[in-house]
Amino acid sequence: MQGVVKVNSALNMRSGPGSNYGVIGTLRNNDKVEIIKEVDGWYEIRFNGKVGSASKSYITIVN
């Protein structure tokens, strides 16, 4: 499943599904990500070869 980031500035990509996990990357508006699965309001995603988590509130699913 594919998604597109929708933010005003930037979205942190984290090492796990929650804001208490470390930041491993930064996503910008309109970045395209691969959604692997949903976990507690977060998506596990793949972006630029990295796997991490980002809040699903800022990612829109595209077909």
Rank of each mutant, 00 (worst) to 15 (best):
F47V: 09
N48Y: 07
W42G: 02
L27I: 05
S9N: 12
Q2W: 15
G3T: 02
G18R: 00
V39N: 08
K50Y: 09
D31C: 07
I45S: 00
I59F: 05
I59G: 00
E44I: 15
V4G: 02
N48A: 11
D31I: 05
N63Q: 13
G18C: 07
K37R: 14
P17Q: 04
K50N: 09
Q2G: 07
D31V: 06
K56G: 06
D40G: 12
L27K: 00
V23S: 06
K6E: 06
N29C: 11
N63I: 12
M1N: 09
S57D: 14
N8L: 12
G3M: 04
K56Q: 05
K6Y: 07
I35Y: 01
S57A: 14
N30S: 07
F47C: 04
L27Q: 00
G49A: 05
K50E: 08
V5T: 03
V23C: 08
V33E: 01
E34Y: 12
V51I: 13
N63A: 13
R14I: 04
K50R: 12
G22S: 14
Y21M: 04
M13V: 15
Y43C: 04
R14Q: 04
S57G: 11
G52M: 04
A10T: 14
V5K: 02
E44A: 06
V39T: 11
L27M: 06
R46W: 10
N20H: 14
G52I: 03
I45T: 00
V51T: 11
G49L: 05
N63P: 12
V51D: 06
A10N: 11
G18L: 01
D40N: 13
Q2N: 10
R28W: 08
E34I: 11
L11Q: 09
I35N: 00
Y43Q: 00
F47G: 01
F47T: 03
E34V: 11
G52K: 01
Y58R: 07
S55R: 15
N20E: 13
E44Q: 12
N29P: 10
S55T: 08
A10F: 15
L27C: 05
S53N: 14
G52V: 04
I36K: 03
G16M: 03
I24T: 06
G41R: 04
K50C: 10
G22T: 13
K50S: 09
S9V: 13
G22H: 13
T60Q: 14
G52R: 01
G3N: 02
A10E: 13
G41T: 06
W42L: 00
G49K: 05
Y43I: 03
T26F: 10
V7I: 10
G25C: 14
R14M: 12
K56M: 11
I24H: 01
P17H: 04
W42K: 00
F47N: 01
D31S: 07
V23L: 06
T26L: 13
V39G: 05
N29I: 07
V23G: 01
E38P: 01
V5Q: 01
V4N: 03
L11G: 05
G22P: 15
Y58D: 10
L11S: 04
K32V: 15
I59N: 00
I45P: 00
I61M: 08
T26Q: 12
F47W: 10
R46H: 07
T60L: 12
F47A: 07
K6A: 08
S19T: 14
R46E: 07
E44T: 12
Q2P: 09
L11F: 05
N8C: 15
L11C: 14
R46Q: 08
R28L: 11
V33D: 00
K56V: 10
M1I: 13
I36Q: 04
E34N: 06
P17N: 06
I24Y: 00
V62A: 09
R14W: 09
R46A: 08
T60P: 06
I61F: 06
V5P: 02
Y58L: 08
T26M: 11
M1A: 10
R14D: 01
S55M: 15
G16V: 02
G25R: 04
K37E: 07
E38M: 07
N48W: 07
K37L: 08
S57L: 14
K56I: 09
R46D: 04
S57K: 15
S57T: 12
I35E: 00
Y43D: 00
D31P: 02
N12G: 11
R14V: 05
K56N: 05
V62K: 06
G18T: 00
I36P: 01
A54I: 15
G22A: 15
A54D: 02
V23W: 05
T26R: 10
Y21G: 06
S15C: 10
S19L: 15
N20V: 08
V5H: 02
G16Y: 02
L11E: 05
G22L: 12
E34H: 10
S9P: 06
A54V: 15
K6M: 10
Q2F: 15
N63V: 12
G49N: 09
F47L: 05
V33R: 00
R28F: 12
I61E: 04
K6S: 10
V5E: 02
N12F: 13
P17T: 04
G3I: 05
V39K: 08
K32Y: 12
Y43M: 04
D40S: 09
V7Q: 03
S55Q: 15
S53C: 15
K32D: 04
V39H: 11
S15P: 02
R28T: 08
R46F: 11
K37C: 13
G3P: 02
G18N: 05
K50Q: 13
R28P: 01
Y21W: 09
N12H: 14
R14E: 00
Q2S: 11
Y58N: 11
N63C: 13
I24M: 06
N8M: 11
N30E: 09
K6V: 12
I45W: 00
K50D: 06
Q2K: 11
S19A: 13
S57Y: 14
S53K: 04
D40P: 06
Y21T: 04
T60F: 14
I59A: 00
G22C: 13
E38C: 09
I61V: 12
N29G: 06
G16C: 07
N12S: 12
V4K: 06
G3A: 07
N8T: 13
N12K: 14
Y43W: 06
G3F: 06
V23E: 04
K56F: 05
G22E: 15
M1E: 06
A10S: 14
Y21D: 03
D31R: 03
I24S: 03
N30P: 03
G41F: 05
K32I: 15
V33M: 04
N30M: 10
M13P: 00
G49S: 06
G49C: 08
V7P: 02
N12C: 15
S55Y: 13
V33W: 03
N30I: 03
Y21N: 04
V33Q: 00
V7L: 05
T26Y: 10
I24F: 00
A10I: 15
R46L: 12
